[in-house]
Design a protein around this nucleic acid. Structure first.
Lengths: 213, 213
DNA sequence: GCTTGTGAAGTAATTCACAGCC
DNA sequence: GGCTGTGAATTACTTCACAAGC
């Protein structure tokens, strides 16, 4: 059984934001930060910041605040990014290629180590400077099993998203970052995080519709 | 003042998911759908589906369910996507270019009509088949004001995200889809929707850390 | 029979407010 | 004086359960 049952999901999401903001503070050579400072930067109340952090331990010092370097280390450990995760990418269309060229992953603890696509003409190719070769889908099971990959990025058309998902899960994948605009069906124990551009834009258009004319 | 004050934010987010799922059902020629069917496809309770929809009106028929076509039309109207929104894109790095090539926007009611980048060598170029010319940042204010663009996609490096944001807002932008890994500071009345790949992956890695070993 | 819409009940998340510590 | 950590209070969200309609 997991050890995080009683922690609110929104709190975990904010943990990532705290980490990102702390890294920004670190760049400015800030040594120490209060829940109020951190909250202000993220538009979150100070009480919220303290509550969220307190779910995981006592990281601060009364009268002082939180040590930036130390809290970063703690958060990375909690989020599991104090090591590098090998990541699988399926789909090398425009989006998949853009993701391969994105340099931000590495420093955050993620590295794309295997790329799959069902387009034969792409097999053996590489994208980005140092990206891995594109492999045929038939190899997926073998590669995931032998390398123990647990995280996948799904950048395929909606029509094949579910079937690719099933294959990945059968091979042992436990977390999927899904860019396909479909609701993936996955068994318990597998997590999905969805990024759907249309959904995001719709939320914004709704927001505009509700403001003054 | 807005007219949506009392509606829970999570309900609005789900509205987009309902719409997406209904469009999928429509493709299979389903005429009518119950809150139970819709909920099952999205892993949401039927009561939740009914409650969410009820915030906006009475769309269903007892004993029958919801008419798929009709509910799609209603949701599009609520979300504001029963028309096409002109969208501004700033930043034509890998991600910006991938977004320009993405065909999914158009059918969802969004069209990128203006593209900006501060790299001189790109000015005048086009990306994607029919994309608009890349223009210099200095033109942004004029173009946004004259074309009344209200929605923007921000795909620039973190370091310049806030300053570009300020410019866009000054020109009249009211909604920003932000791909830069920073917490943008915006005035009331402006909405931001964030997509941060590292944050998503961190949530997944946290999820894996909490499962059985 | 099945399904909606909705008050009431229950659960979850946030904010308050303050004792205790630096 | 400033700040954390945390129970208590509050607010927000979800689920229940059922009357009313098809």
């Amino acid at each position: 059984m997991g050890k995080h049952e009683s922690i609110p999901t929104p709190a975990v999401r904010r943990l990532s934001l705290y980490l990102r903001q702390l890294e920004a503070f670190q760049e400015t050579n800030l040594r120490t930060v209060s829940s109020k400072q951190l909250g202000q930067a993220l538009r979150i109340t100070d009480a919220q910041v303290r509550k969220d952090l307190a779910y995981f331990g006592q990281f601060g010092q009364p009268g002082i605040g939180y040590d930036v370097d130390e809290l970063i280390a703690k958060l990375r450990h909690i989020l599991g990014t104090d090591r590098t995760w090998p990541v699988l990418l399926v789909g090398t269309g425009n989006l998949g290629r853009a993701l391969l060229s994105y340099k931000g992953f590495q420093s955050k603890g993620f590295e794309v180590v295997a790329v799959f696509d069902d387009d034969q003409s792409l097999h053996g190719q590489t994208f980005g400077d140092t990206g891995p070769n594109v492999q045929p889908m038939q190899k997926l099971d073998e590669v995931v099993k032998s390398t123990q990959i647990r995280l996948a990025i799904l950048a395929v058309p909606a029509a094949v998203a579910q079937s690719v998902t099933d294959k990945m899960i059968a091979a042992g994948v436990k977390g999927i970052l899904n860019f396909a605009p479909v609701a993936l069906q996955v068994p318990r124990g597998v997590n999905v995080s969805n990024v759907d551009l249309a959904v995001h834009l719709e939320q914004l258009s709704f927001g505009i519709g509700s403001s003054d004319v």
